[in-house]
Nucleic acid binder design. Structure first.
Length: 272
DNA sequence: CGGGTTTGACCTGCGC
DNA sequence: GCGCAGGTCAAACCCG
């Protein structure tokens, strides 16, 4: 309804790239790593922070050492004893994601869904960014289809729900504006793309596909591909407090002295 | 005509 | 158990 197919590139010029962008500065930005899922969806490999590492490298221009020991993800950590208390966890109370009953039930399941009892819903990893942007839906190289919009409590701005248009890709994302700073867009990714950039279903190659693919690290065969757009749009001055606020009640555990990345960014990379 | 968006209804989990 | 809020569905609509 509002803006359609904006081009944030023009909006976000080289301001950020010209500023000092280090992983340290990123640590004082606010994006969340949500991954307290009880179990990872099989077929997806999120462990090792590959996604976030890719993002870090893209964003900061610095390389994360291959032998860097990331904190363990819940894939190897039992629920309830996460080894990374510094990480901001973004988990909602009503995730359903890939295990929707509607996936393989009858068309009229809506009326009489028979949920398998005792079967916990699987949560997918989450990856949230706070981006200073005038446009809500940032171009990130993937094609998204909006499937819902909801008014959010305590926020004058609605939350939009998007799915990757690639049929084999289960990635979703939520986009909402911060109620505290309307100029900040909170984008939460769920899941992991199983493809590179856009898969155009209408034979439309899209204007950016080639460019994006060029930017994708060649070694990232099985990575989560972070939105390239963000590396030029995420300002380092975004406040931590807001990140804490959007990350549920568990946020009380985060944001200690070292910030969000204190646990996952090697000290050697944190230029001081 | 096909794909994307809008939007009200419905479902589900959680707190009280 | 009830109400609330978040999340999803799907029909109607829009647009290229």
């Amino acid at each position: 309804m509002d803006e359609k197919k904006p081009n944030p590139k023009s909006t976000f010029s080289s301001d950020f790239s010209s500023s000092e962008t280090t992983i340290d500065s990123m640590a004082s930005s606010s994006y969340l790593i949500g991954d307290q899922s009880d179990e990872l969806l099989s077929g997806f490999e999120w462990g090792g922070y590959s996604g976030f590492q890719a993002f870090l490298e893209e964003f900061s221009g610095q390389k994360v050492p291959e032998n860097h020991s990331w904190p363990q993800f819940p894939a190897t950590t039992k629920p309830g004893e996460a080894s990374t208390p510094n990480l901001s966890v973004s988990s909602s109370s009503s995730d359903d994601l890939s295990t929707k009953p509607s996936d393989d039930t009858k068309p009229d399941q809506k009326k009489n869904k028979e949920k398998k009892k005792g079967q916990k819903r699987i949560r997918q990893p989450r990856f949230a960014f706070m981006t200073k942007s005038e446009v809500d839906h940032l171009e990130d190289g993937y094609r998204w289809r909006k499937y819902g919009q909801k008014a959010v409590k305590n926020s004058p701005f609605p939350r939009s729900y998007y799915r990757c248009t690639n049929q084999k890709c289960t990635v979703k994302k939520r986009v909402e504006r911060s109620s505290e700073d309307p100029s900040i867009v909170v984008t939460t990714y769920e899941g992991q793309h199983c493809h590179h950039t856009v898969s155009f279903s209408r034979g439309n190659p899209g204007p950016r596909e080639g460019a994006f693919q060029e930017q994708i690290p060649t070694s990232s065969s099985n990575r989560y591909f972070p939105p390239m757009q963000f590396r030029s749009v995420v300002p380092p001055q975004v406040q931590l407090g807001q990140a804490a606020r959007i990350s549920n009640d568990q946020s009380t555990e985060i944001q200690n002295d070292e910030g969000l990345l204190g646990d996952i960014v090697p000290g050697s990379m944190r230029s001081t």
